[in-house]
């Protein structure tokens, strides 16, 4: 029995989050097969074959998989699930969307967002916004789980996996892709950036985020936000860091005008170094910050900008 990893990709390259999920898959001790389902995904397949630890790449190239909609993808995975004792993907919004559908079709329970592999059947996962860590043992025939990417290193390069073409299971046509409004940015992706600078309600407006962006560009950092800043419309939804947004664990996280609610901490408290800039010295964010500066952000951030 082997381990199947479902890849996230843009038809060109395999996502960093998938390479991290592969590290979790390797820890199960079986051969790892990587499914690349997409449309015109030959480049992504070639990229996949180079990943260290991948024994075989399974290619499903069909219009049905162009946007990784859950309905056709789940049918495909279920059609090939025999022979796999574990099915794994990264806990991205795609993975969170399709994986439970696969689990239910296989009549298997799912583990969400695992952060550690204890042994081949036992895993750790955070619950209650990371305020408790559950150790769970799985005895089902197939282990179905999503992996919190920030908890694992990315698998390296140097592999030379074989490639097998799969027959498409098609699309039943109950769901249809209409369009996308993607945030365009030259900055690094939030979940894989080495430095993240996030703004909260204290930023007061979307326009004021330009002072964070200027610092971000000097540091090669990604820009994030609290829920309050997203709800207020300062920045798009995909900036949200937290329990119900993105989980980040960069080398350096700078929280600006963010109070430090548990839901926000859940998304960033595993960062290596945390800096907080807040005018309220009682703000809970200072309880997790390695370096705290009690100051008005509208003075402190421009000062930081010129000090870099």
């Amino acid at each position: 029995m082997n381990t199947l990893v479902i890849a996230e990709h843009d038809n060109q390259t395999i996502a960093d989050a998938t390479k991290k999920a592969i590290s979790a898959a390797i820890a199960l001790g079986k051969d790892v097969h990587l499914l690349v389902a997409g449309e015109n995904c030959a480049d992504a397949v070639a990229d996949a074959a180079k990943i260290d630890g991948v024994a075989k790449v399974l290619k499903a190239d069909d219009a049905a998989f162009a946007k990784l909609l859950a309905e056709p993808l789940a049918d495909l995975v279920v059609s090939m699930a025999d022979g796999y004792s574990a099915i794994i993907t990264a806990a991205t919004t795609n993975g969170k969307n399709f994986m439970p559908r696969i689990a239910a079709l296989l009549d298997m329970p799912q583990l969400s967002d695992i952060t550690a592999v204890v042994d081949a059947n036992t895993f750790e996962r955070p619950i209650y916004a990371g305020n408790a860590i559950q150790t769970v043992k799985v005895s089902s025939a197939t282990i179905v789980m999503t992996v919190r990417a920030t908890a694992f290193p990315a698998a390296g390069e140097g592999g030379s996996a074989s490639v097998e073409d799969l027959t498409s299971t098609g699309d039943k046509g109950i769901s249809e892709y209409v369009g996308e409004e993607l945030t365009v940015s030259d900055r690094p992706e939030l979940t894989s950036a080495k430095i993240v600078i996030s703004g909260g309600r204290g930023m007061q407006s979307g326009d004021n985020f330009t002072i964070l962006e200027s610092v971000a560009d000097k540091l090669g950092a990604a820009v994030g936000a609290s829920r309050a800043a997203v709800d207020a419309g300062f920045v798009p939804n995909d900036y949200q860091v937290g329990q119900t947004g993105k989980v980040v664990a960069p080398e350096l996280y700078i929280a600006v005008g963010i109070s430090g609610a548990i839901q926000h901490l859940a998304g960033m408290k595993d960062s290596k170094v945390i800096v907080a800039i807040n005018k309220d010295e009682e703000a809970p964010i200072f309880q997790v910050a390695d370096y705290g500066l009690v100051a008005d952000l509208f003075n402190a951030v421009p000062e930081l900008d010129s000090a870099l």
């Binding site: 559950q134 769970v136 799985v138 370096y291």
Partner: peptide, 29 residues
């Protein structure tokens, strides 16, 4: 179907230090 082996506290993060100025912050970083 899943067995909860245990539920534990996450590792606690200690509060660090307060810095007085941006210059001190950048120096420490």
């Amino acid at each position: 179907q899943l067995e909860i082996v245990k539920v534990a506290e996450p590792p606690v993060r200690e509060a660090g230090v307060k810095v007085e100025t941006i210059q001190e912050l950048v120096d420490k970083l």
